[in-house]
Amino acid sequence: MFILPLDTIHEGSMKFLYIQLILMQVNSDKILKRVLFAASLVILLIAAAMVFSLFKGSLPSISRFGWGFLFSPEWDPTQGREHYGALLFIVGTLLTSVVALIIALPLAFFTSLFVAEYFRGTKIATIVSTLVDLLAGIPSIIYGLWGFYMLRPFIVTLGLSPQGFGVLTSALVLAIMVVPYATSLSNNTIMMVPNELKEAAYSLGATRLEVIRNVILPSARSGMTASYILAFGRAIGETLAVTMLIGNENIIPKGLCSTGNTMASVIANQFGEASGLQLSSLIEIGLLLFVMTTLINAAGKYIIKKIA
């Protein structure tokens, strides 16, 4: 840019230019603010339309079965005596997820302590936490394959079930899948416990275990709880790995080694060929899944917000 001597420009035109420049800026600012706001509406619309579409798609099923849908264990697509109930899928989903969480808990809990306390700040802790995070990156279908070809034969060898399918097999794979979700937030909350507090406990003669039990865990408890809740939410919505391992039998599981079916799996298995009332019932299961995961995640987020 070069500068003209002032007197070569007419004063009036100078002022005019300046005003125009300001106007341009004001306009651009306004436009950008509006664009940003409009974009924010998009996500709002998506969420609202999602709830609306799921609900609308479920209407035939809702008006036919009402609340009974939640409590009926029957899933019968036979023409003429069609009847759909979600109970066995709800039980299957909750059972696999709870068992998965129980298996994942010691893994996640101790791995968090390893990374955030025992070996905090060392190279080995970085390596371990990176490897654990990699678990979150592996696609669901690969977990399914691994479970099907590696874990399932092992379950058969142990004699736990003849085919190796079932709740336990799915839960074992789910557990590995949710460990990274359960650890990452736990690591952060453990690391946030102030060093001064730990030193105070050490100075009173506490061993490391006693410091962990009396100082670290009380401070980090709510954050760790939140991370396990979020991991549970993950497990509930997991589809493919479970579909490949649960056995897809429409029964309420009788035990850990029993086969069963989950909400996500029945959708994956039947959605393609379904129509009419069956399709609507599958969409209602999707709606239930949406509501369940949203409530669970909201609970986890609420706890996190309370700490922060």
Partner: peptide
């Protein structure tokens, strides 16, 4: 809402795209 969307199971998103 972004956090809620992030937690929605992928199969449910599949249903949505199917319907839409």
């Amino acid at each position: 809402i972004a956090d809620i969307l992030q937690g929605v199971p992928s199969i449910v998103i599949g249903i949505i795209a199917y319907i839409w």
